[in-house]
Design a binder for these strands. Structure first.
Lengths: 137, 137
DNA sequence: ATAAGGCTTCCCATGATGGCAAGGTCAAGA
DNA sequence: TCTTGACCTTGCCATCATGGGAAGCCTTAT
């Protein structure tokens, strides 16, 4: 099948399929005489694997390892589990950072009456920068 | 003061100060005869404002608006509050997406015994119903 | 005077993705 | 057979905020 069909079947855009090939994440597809890339079910399955892993937030360089483990029938599931746990830990760290931002912003927004007047604790906090403590003032 | 001192005083790197100037977020600094940028307390305050807003996750194009409101003495605090609320909403949306990833990954990791054996529900899920290896025959 | 270090501009890279453009290919219909 | 439109190819540019590095000038301290 052509790249467009492979894209539709895998959920990975044709653009990204070419990108994954160029960066070595997937092997170079075979070509027709006129240069069209040709894909089989095996390759579509690999693309779906990649798509799913991306949906779970794995960066491409981690997917390289995941794909290698996927192909390795003598793998240890502990290696896969560790990668997954690392990914969980990274996501949770980012979530905590963003939640801290939300908490600060919500605190400031709650203190802002949000009317026609210019007085605004949000801007006051931003203006004081690191010199001010937003929640314990 | 020079850009290095302004960077240390504001928490914004010299590289980023030049970038903010080039992109119009901040006005061009005055220069010495030899071309060095010169900063005053006012500009450092503005940089601290930017730094604080970046720490709260505001993208630079939103900071343009925040800075304009900061300078506008006839602003309406409702405008500031709306920006903050938009930022909160955007952050919470991303948090929810990432939390969903975490939940899925945790579910899979919990189901993976993580030992020396190759059987792994994580890879099975990524393979989208595959047997755990790309080529089944 | 010289050395060290700060400043300047310019270019490149990130990470994953989309868009656009110019040109080749293929399949179907007139 | 010719045309048309959809699809494919490569290549370049853009994102978004940030860092790195090079080549060269300026300042300061010794």
């Amino acid at each position: 099948m052509n790249i467009g069909e492979a894209a539709a079947a895998s959920g990975v855009s044709a653009k990204m399929i070419r990108y994954y090939e160029a960066t070595g994440l997937i092997p170079a597809a075979t070509r027709t005489g006129s240069g069209y890339r040709v894909y089989t079910g095996t390759e579509v399955q690999m693309l779906r694997f990649i798509r799913r892993a991306r949906d779970l937030g794995f960066p491409v360089d981690k997917i390289v390892t995941l794909l290698a483990l996927w192909r390795d029938r003598s793998r240890h599931s502990s290696d896969v589990k560790r990668l997954a746990q690392d990914q969980i830990d990274g996501l949770e760290r980012k979530i905590k950072e963003m939640q801290a931002m939300v908490d600060t912003l919500q605190h400031l927004a709650d203190a802002c009456c949000g009317d026609h007047r210019p007085d605004c604790p949000i801007l006051t906090d931003l203006g004081h920068g690191a010199t001010g403590a937003p929640s314990r003032g």
